[in-house]
Structures are given as C-alpha cells and as structure tokens.
C-alpha cells in the first residue's frame, strides 16, 4: 500500500550520523553490502566486477566534501578548508515521496516503526521511486531488476537468534569510530534523541519537505592547537629521598 501511515508512527527507528567523528573509512559501506547481499531480498549484484567499468548496488555510500568558510583559503594542510566525510543511506522519511509514487504497492512505510521497505516480489523495476528520492537512497539492482534500499537491517534489529549486542544495523555495529548510532527518534528519552538535542542534529534538504527520520550531527567548530590550554607540567615538589634524586636527574636530561 503506497499511502503513507496517516498518523505519525509510534516509533521512528533511524540513524544518527556524527559528521564530527566519521573518518571516511568506508567500513560501513562494506559491512552493509556484505550483510545485505545475503539478507533481505535479492543479492546486491556487481556489474563487470573484474573489468574497468566495475559498478554495483550499494545501500550506503560515503562521500567526502571539502568545506571552505567564506573568505577562507585552501592552503594545503594549513588553510581554513576542512574535509568532512559524509555517509549517506535511506533516511526513512516521514513524508517519503518514494513510497507514494510507486505504482505497484511494492514500496511502503511500516506503520509501527516507520521503516521504509520494498516488497521485491511486487516491484516491476520502473525506477520511479529512485527518481522521487532527492537523496539518492534507492538503487536499482541491474541484475535482479528490482529496487534496493536500506532496510535498517530489519533482519538484525528484531532478530532474537543473534546476541543482543548485534541487534543493530550492520553499519552501526561495524563503525570503528562510533560515528553511527541507531535508535528510536520518536522517543525523546532515547540516546539518539538526546544526542540530536545536545549537538544540534539536523535534516538533509529540509526544503524538499520529506521530513527525514535520520539526523546528522554537525562537525564541531575547529580549534587550533595554540588556543587550547597548555599541557600542565606535573608538580613533583613533594618528592623525597631517592625519588627526589631521580626526579631532578630526569629533569636534567
């Protein structure tokens, strides 16, 4: 059914991605592909995998941007420009335009937790939903001819046969820097909601009117080394005897 849930879903499961922390290692991209190629629906195929024009279906991709403040200069390492690594996958929008355009009913938004899914057996591969998504979060699998998108690892998060610590999306579980967080953004008391409130989490392209569930945390303002407090020299005046002698000898060398 391609009508969106008439009321706001009681749960809004989604991701919070910390742009201050992400180092752009692409581990989430690979773990997502690995998990999802054997999980929900058709495998994520690659085209011309060993050739020059290799390409494939991915549900999560990491872009890297250079951001230059106004009047800023790009001078090698010392300029004002900064690099921001930017992971992007489906934002499980509340007003998901990808769902309402679907002619077959293959695309839908779950009424209980807000996850946006594709029922692949119903998908004709018309590609219209990928056109409707402003974020590029849907990719047609060129081998299966059906639309693929992030499922929020629906086959992990509710999976009672795996250890509890693994019941989060694969990308979140994998991220070596903890830049990705999973939780219920409808619950103001959840860790993710608190994080969003504390750090000023924001929506991507709010002007598209999609009301994404996923939020991004901005990079913290940059400080230079000189302006941070100097490292305190430890006070050793209390030392006596042998320790005092070692202390004074070490100071000398």
């Amino acid at each position: 059914m391609t009508s969106l849930p008439s009321e706001s879903t009681p749960k809004k499961l989604g991701l919070v991605i910390d742009l201050d922390v992400c180092v752009g290692c692409h581990a989430c991209v690979i773990s997502c592909k690995e998990w999802n190629t054997g999980g929900y629906g058709a495998a994520l195929s690659d085209q011309d995998p060993y050739g020059g024009a290799v390409s494939g279906t991915f549900l999560n991709r990491v872009h890297s941007y250079e951001v230059v403040p106004e009047g800023g200069e790009v001078v090698g390492e010392r300029g004002e420009a900064r690099i921001v690594h930017f992971p992007k996958s489906c934002l499980h929008c509340e007003d998901a335009p990808c769902v309402t355009v679907c002619p077959t009913g293959a695309s839908y938004k779950r009424a209980d937790d807000g996850i946006v899914l594709v029922e692949e057996d119903m998908c004709i591969g018309c590609g219209l939903c990928a056109w409707a998504c402003p974020y590029g979060a849907r990719e047609m699998d060129l081998s299966a001819g059906v639309m693929k998108k992030c499922t929020l690892c629906i086959d992990r998060i509710y999976n009672e046969t795996i250890p509890e610590i693994d019941r989060v999306p694969s990308c979140v579980r994998t991220c070596p820097t903890n830049a990705r967080h999973f939780g219920d953004l409808a619950d103001p008391g959840s860790d993710v909601s608190k994080m969003v409130a504390a750090r000023g989490g924001f929506d991507l392209m709010p002007e598209q009117g999609t009301r994404p569930v996923n939020k991004y945390l901005p990079p913290r303002p940059r400080r230079n080394l000189a302006s941070s407090a100097p490292v305190q020299v430890e006070d050793t005046s209390g030392a006596r005897g042998l320790l005092a002698w070692v202390d004074s000898m070490l100071d000398r060398i």
Binding site: F58, H63, S64, E66, E70, R82, P218, P219
Partner: peptide, 10 residues
Amino acid sequence: IGKVRLFEPP
C-alpha cells in the same frame, strides 16, 4: 560552515 565541494566521490 562554508561552501561545499565534492572532494572524493563514493
């Protein structure tokens, strides 16, 4: 923060 330019595509 400033003007955004793609530095590296995915």
